[in-house]
Amino acid sequence: MPDTNKSIGLLYEMAVFVSVVETGSFSAAAKDLGVSPSSVSRSVSRLEEQLACRLLERTTRKLRLNEAGQAVYQRCRDMRGAAEAVLDVSERINPKPQGELRISIPKAIGHLLVHPFMPEFLRQYPDIDVQMLLEDRYIDLIDDRVDLVIRITNHPPQDMVGRKLIDIEHVICASPQYLEQFAPLTHPRQLREHSCIFLGEQPKDRQWTFHQGTQNITVEISGRYAANHTQVRLDAAIQGIGIASLPYFSVHQAIRRGELIQVLPDWRFVTSYTGGAWLLYPPNRYLPAKLKVFIDYLTKSLSRLPQIPPALKKTDHENRASSSK
């Protein structure tokens, strides 16, 4: 009589084996499953060890099923088909979005961009609970048991499904009161004469880089105040402590209200925190309803946010300063 516990313990390995056969390689299967190639290799090896037979003939260029592998593959494919049928039944019986969502988001984006939309989401979907993990460190979806992650990058990982939510651009700005004490800034090198408010987590945070046409200029700045929190730097700039580096999504309202003025608007300020904010999740043919509705809701909500223009027009303050030269 078959050992039921043993067969249940091999269900994951069987599914991985089917993916390897159908994609043609460990790396392709890993991409499809959202895991590492080494993890896929270990799963197939465990299956072969438990069955006490070799299933795949490995060459330097491709994988080939042997006779035993053909027989095992057919049965494993039937097993996966049964699992997919169960999921289909589940969707038909209970299509209502429900359950817990664990989402990893960088602190500033979570606080200033995502959180404002969460009350309405929770009202629309009363059966979904959300746990937001506000962390700037790298999060592994599998190891950290999260459903979705938002990362700032220009190169989203190929083994994940991604939706670009918004472009993250940074600007430097200061209060009108601070700027009135100095001559107008027309070139990034003049920042050396100012007190700058910066991130302060690593030495390169003191190096501000600017692009204009074919020019790339990096300036070593200094200042009396550093803070690794966007809201703190924003408040410090409004209070007139100095010139701050800030993501545009955090500062556009203060600029519109006249509390802050963008400095050097004709130069593009670039940091390692510049790029697209991507919503990432493992590839999955059967995406749970709770994930579907959240992804659609957040994508639609953030699409309405203002994007930084190529260069903000000079403010009245700067025009007055230029005309007085």
Results as ranks from 00 to 15, higher is better:
258 G>H: 10
241 I>K: 15
84 E>V: 11
183 A>Y: 04
19 S>I: 08
317 H>S: 13
188 P>W: 10
83 A>L: 15
279 L>F: 05
89 V>P: 04
59 T>E: 05
149 V>G: 06
203 P>M: 00
72 V>P: 12
299 T>S: 12
42 R>P: 04
95 P>Y: 01
144 D>L: 07
258 G>A: 05
12 Y>Q: 13
121 F>N: 04
105 I>G: 03
77 R>P: 10
44 V>C: 15
156 P>S: 02
272 S>T: 06
99 G>E: 07
298 L>R: 01
70 Q>H: 12
29 A>K: 04
217 I>G: 03
172 I>C: 13
162 G>M: 10
6 K>R: 15
81 G>Y: 00
245 S>Y: 00
39 S>M: 08
41 S>L: 04
105 I>N: 02
95 P>N: 08
293 V>K: 11
266 D>E: 15
236 A>F: 12
89 V>R: 09
228 N>S: 14
222 S>I: 00
36 S>Q: 14
267 W>S: 03
141 L>W: 08
101 L>K: 10
100 E>N: 12
224 R>W: 11
167 D>K: 11
135 E>H: 06
228 N>Q: 09
139 I>P: 05
303 S>R: 07
93 I>T: 10
181 Q>D: 05
176 P>V: 01
288 P>M: 08
100 E>A: 14
288 P>G: 00
25 S>V: 07
24 G>E: 05
192 R>T: 14
309 P>G: 06
127 D>A: 13
273 Y>L: 12
244 A>E: 03
7 S>N: 10
35 V>C: 10
56 L>E: 04
115 H>V: 06
271 T>N: 05
150 I>E: 07
31 K>F: 03
18 V>Q: 11
257 R>Q: 12
258 G>F: 10
192 R>M: 15
210 F>Q: 09
46 R>G: 03
38 S>K: 06
176 P>S: 00
61 R>D: 12
88 D>Y: 06
128 I>V: 15
232 V>G: 04
40 V>P: 04
34 G>R: 04
124 Q>M: 08
308 I>E: 14
260 L>M: 01
94 N>E: 07
11 L>P: 03
196 C>Q: 03
201 E>G: 02
3 D>A: 05
197 I>V: 12
106 P>V: 02
90 S>E: 15
106 P>T: 02
63 L>E: 00
23 T>P: 11
227 A>E: 11
251 V>M: 04
46 R>Q: 08
291 L>G: 03
44 V>F: 05
165 L>Q: 08
176 P>Y: 01
182 F>T: 02
323 S>E: 13
144 D>S: 13
115 H>F: 08
267 W>A: 07
61 R>F: 11
37 P>I: 01
166 I>W: 06
166 I>G: 03
258 G>L: 11
25 S>M: 06
73 Y>T: 06
21 V>A: 09
48 E>L: 09
39 S>K: 08
91 E>F: 11
210 F>M: 09
291 L>W: 10
13 E>Q: 15
